[in-house]
Design a protein around this nucleic acid. Structure first.
Length: 825
RNA sequence: GCGAAAGUGGCGGAACUGGCAGACGCGCCGGACUUAGGAUCCGGUAGCCGAAAGGCUAUGGGGGUUCGACUCCCCCCUUUCGCACCA
């Protein structure tokens, strides 16, 4: 028997695919398109099986869709800018580019050895000027529209990475990359106005029905929409007022004090006007320097001090004291809140500590009390009425507040996209003209990692002429957050070599949006919200017609080993290359797809992989033993023949399997149960062949033969369907077997097997019978039996008789095609 | 603390709209073929009682709805994840 040698076969087919450009595509309006994408890779070095699981999932979908006649775009590329490259450069004295390109080369080899069906001609890396040029172009467009702007602000700073972090990149008070506790710095920073789209980003989540609910919830929480009101409180003895944001304006009669964030601008004025400004400032400063994480998470005890000043609560006409408190956040709302200790837990804690009055204004029945003219109203109505009253008095109005903040994109590091802005003494901030893009990264060999932008040390880069006045100007030396790169790469894949525009609109309109997107759930807010934001920017710039970039999202589970996530530092990684060497890529792919549903995390098991390898051997042997008999032309379609019982049974199994596997793959993406369905078909085929002793023996002697053409026809149909349906999982072996079965042209040309409902129909059905809810027997009946016949047969069944004897049959329920339920008393 | 998801054999996991719980695989046990086998093929494998036929108990625990519940409802427990002073 021809031995199964995965290494030889896989090499052969991978070479064939490359040679025939099998996965390269162009727009073709005559066919339905399918854009299948896995989150592109950060080239960190070597991919482990946890990384490649995602690519395998996408590949099954891409290959399936190709077989089903779709024009499939399945590209891959590299998220190639970022800190690790720069850190490796500092550590090893290499250039970040060298490190990055070496890693890309290695990882690309790994993916090719896995047989992932990528359109490699579309590959790019974000560190190429041909790509990041368009980051700069897009930044310029956003700058022109006021969507990119610069301001001084307090930013999150990672001491270890020596750079700024966006709010989305602060996880549990630490850096998303290295976990170092985040500190605060005051810096001039570039921001992208994502808040402009807060409402649309929020509303858009409703249309993303096929996204995991979990991701949508996280995004909604992150955007954090609150409805309430802004109300002004006049400052006693001054002309101006303090504005607060509240979601509980109905409790305004219970506001007994006011609290300002230590960062609030009025704090400094009150300090200056106070009898002892230095002491005042010292107290405020103490809160400001308190660990921000602690302040944010409530771990720090609530503290405050009385400013000695008062505001007037216009509803009660009382003067209430203004405090400064550490629990009020400067960057949310107005940085000032009204203190309603009776109806807010934080305010109660604070008021109790400092002996401030507590006044109940909503009773247990949610009705307003002691609220002037509003007393007696239900709280909800009170809220509307008080808002209206504030509006008519000109001291407030209904307001919506978001938690989402603008996206700070300045990074004080080298290995990123230079921000294309010049500072001219005369003209101020001037964007680099489009025809001078890209602003390329200058070659450097020293990367300080000191917190000042490395580019600032390259005089030739910094000192330029102003394109407007020709006078001296200096370049911006910060680079962009790498999440800018990954926020639109999926559109660039539609037109990766365009040198006039980021992409051609017609191409993006043809391919977009991504139909199936898979990747790790860790991007639920970062990448996935930024990408949605960019999609809207492109739309509003007239560059695409899509509101949303990803129609369907699958968040794949991680692969654990020894109960822990695989990582180099833990030393528990499984390298796909090692597994390919031992078992072949096909067995590895099949195992990873079979072991659990794609969304679930899995524990790596060598034994499981062994099992998948054995299954493939079983398929190999099966096909090899039958190939001579069932291969080739001239065998009639089984639908035209008169079959015996065994043949009909096999045919039924074949078509049941086609139906089930097709549904499991698309739309359900239950890849694991699709594989088990195919395993069942293999088991059935073995039983069938053994039953009629038709296998060719190991030594090439015929043990028996398929002497009926009908037998050959159904076996052929079953085996061919099996090979085709397995091909998305184990593409190399299935191409080889398809060829062994005397077909040329490959599995995609052959197409996905068609389900024939006639063939799947059973002539007989086995119907279970319950008596008082307990299974007591089964009856076998012709599929066409009527309800009355089923009921009669069920009641006649001996076991059922035994349990109904001497009792009265109260009711018989026949669930058509499912079971019979007999109720006795 | 708030929110979400999930708890099924020794293990990974099935069960599509309330209808035969444990598909498929791993592991284990047995048989066949073998000089041998950690190869291959076949069979068995939730627990308890029983020689068997069969019966009883089982989907985290407790209630409920229903002829019928892993599936729906209520309470509780556990785990995982997310959010965490957002006024």
């Amino acid at each position: 028997m021809a031995e199964y040698n995965p290494q030889t076969i896989e090499k052969k087919w991978q070479d064939t695919w490359t040679r025939t450009r099998a996965f390269e595509v162009t727009e073709d309006p005559s066919r339905p398109k399918f854009y299948c994408l896995e989150m592109f890779a950060y080239p960190s070095g070597h991919a482990h099986v946890g990384h490649v699981r995602n690519y395998m999932i996408g590949d099954v979908m891409a290959r399936l869709k190709r077989m089903r006649g779709f024009n499939v775009l399945h590209p891959f590329g590299w998220d190639a800018f970022g800190l690790p490259a720069e850190n490796a450069a500092i550590k090893h004295g290499t250039h970040p580019e060298t490190w990055t390109l070496e890693n890309i080369a290695h990882m690309k080899g790994q993916l090719q050895r896995l047989g992932i069906s990528y359109a490699w001609e579309r590959e790019f890396a974000t560190c190429e000027p041909e790509y990041y040029r368009w980051n700069q172009w897009l930044f310029t467009r956003m700058f022109e529209k006021g969507l990119a702007y610069k301001r001084r602000s307090t930013v999150n700073w990672c001491e270890s990475c020596q750079t700024v972090l966006a709010n989305e990149q602060v996880v549990d008070g630490g850096c998303w990359r290295c976990g170092t506790p985040v500190t605060q710095r005051d810096l001039e920073q570039w921001f992208l106005r994502i808040t402009e789209y807060a409402d649309e980003l929020l509303k858009g989540t409703d249309a993303l029905g096929t996204w995991p609910e979990k991701v949508l919830t996280m995004q909604r929480n992150w955007i954090g929409r609150s409805e309430g009101a802004r109300v002004k409180f006049p400052i006693a003895g001054a002309d101006d007022q303090i504005e607060v944001f509240t979601t509980r304006i109905d409790t305004i009669y219970g506001a007994t004090f006011m609290t300002l964030a230590p960062e609030h601008p009025l704090v400094e004025r009150f300090a200056a006007e106070s009898p002892d400004p230095a002491a005042f400032r010292a107290k405020a400063q103490k809160f400001r320097s308190q660990d921000r994480t602690g302040r944010m998470t409530g771990d720090v005890e609530k503290e405050g001090f009385d400013t000695g000043r008062r505001v007037i609560n216009s509803f009660t006409n009382e003067e209430i004291p203004i405090w400064v408190a550490n629990f009020v956040l400067g960057e949310y709302g107005t940085g000032a809140v009204m203190g309603v200790p009776a109806h807010d837990e934080r305010d109660r804690e604070f008021a109790t500590k400092y002996g401030l009055p507590i006044r109940v204004v909503v009773n247990d029945a949610d009705v307003l009390v002691e609220s002037g003219e509003f007393s007696g109203l239900p709280a909800a109505e009170g809220m509307a009425r008080i808002t209206a009253a504030a509006e008519s008095r000109g001291i407030g109005q209904g307001a919506v507040q978001y938690r989402l903040k603008d996206w700070g994109i300045s990074r004080q590091r080298y290995w990123g996209t230079p921000i294309p802005i010049l500072y001219c003494e005369k003209d101020g901030m001037v964007p680099v003209p489009d025809d001078q893009l890209p602003v390329t990264l200058p070659k450097m060999d020293v990367f300080s990692g000191r917190g000042d932008s490395p580019l600032a040390s390259v005089a030739k880069f910094v000192n330029v002429k102003c394109p407007r006045c020709g006078g001296p100007a200096k370049r911006e030396t910060d680079t962009m957050d790498t999440f800018v790169d990954s926020s639109w790469y999926f559109y660039r894949f539609c037109d990766p070599h365009n040198d006039r525009l980021p992409f051609d609109r017609a191409k993006v309109d043809y391919w977009g949006p991504v139909d199936f997107y898979s990747g790790g759930v860790e991007h639920a807010i970062l990448h996935l919200i930024y990408s949605r934001f960019f999609a809207k920017i492109f739309r509003d710039l007239g560059l695409s017609g899509h509101d949303e970039p990803f129609a369907r999202l699958l968040t794949q589970g991680m692969v654990l080993k020894g109960g822990a996530v695989m990582s180099k530092s833990r030393g528990n990684v499984v390298d796909p290359d090692d597994m390919i060497e031992k078992y072949g890529a096909d067995a590895l792919r099949l195992y990873v797809m079979f072991v659990a549903p794609p969304e679930k995390e899995v524990e790596w098991s060598d034994a499981g992989l062994d099992g998948s390898f054995r299954f493939l051997l079983r398929v190999w042997r099966l096909v090899w033993r039958l190939a001579e008999t069932i291969g080739g032309e001239g065998i009639p379609a089984p639908g035209t023949l008169t079959l015996n019982d065994a043949e009909r049974a096999l045919r039924r199994k074949t078509h049941e399997t086609i139906r089930r596997v097709t549904l499991d793959l698309d739309p359900r993406v239950h890849l694991n149960t699709a594989v088990s369905g195919l395993m069942e078909l293999v088991n059935e085929l073995y039983t069938f062949c053994q039953g009629i002793r038709c296998f060719r023996g190991e030594d090439n002697d015929d043990v028996g033969a398929m002497d009926r053409i009908e037998t050959i026809a159904v076996a052929k149909e079953a085996v061919e369907a099996l090979v085709l349906m397995l091909s998305p999982f184990a593409p190399h072996m299935m191409e080889e077997l398809w060829e062994m079965l005397d077909h040329s042209g490959g599995v995609v040309a052959a197409g996905w097997p068609a389900f024939d409902p006639e063939a799947a129909k059973a002539d007989e059905v086995v119907i279970p019978v319950q008596v008082n809810g307990k299974l007591r027997g089964r009856v076998t009946l012709p599929a066409a039996a009527t309800e009355a016949e089923i009921e009669k047969a069920a009641l006649a069944e001996p076991q059922v008789q035994a349990h109904t004897a001497g009792k009265t049959v109260v009711k018989v329920i026949v669930a058509k095609g499912k079971l019979v339920s007999v109720v006795v008393k």
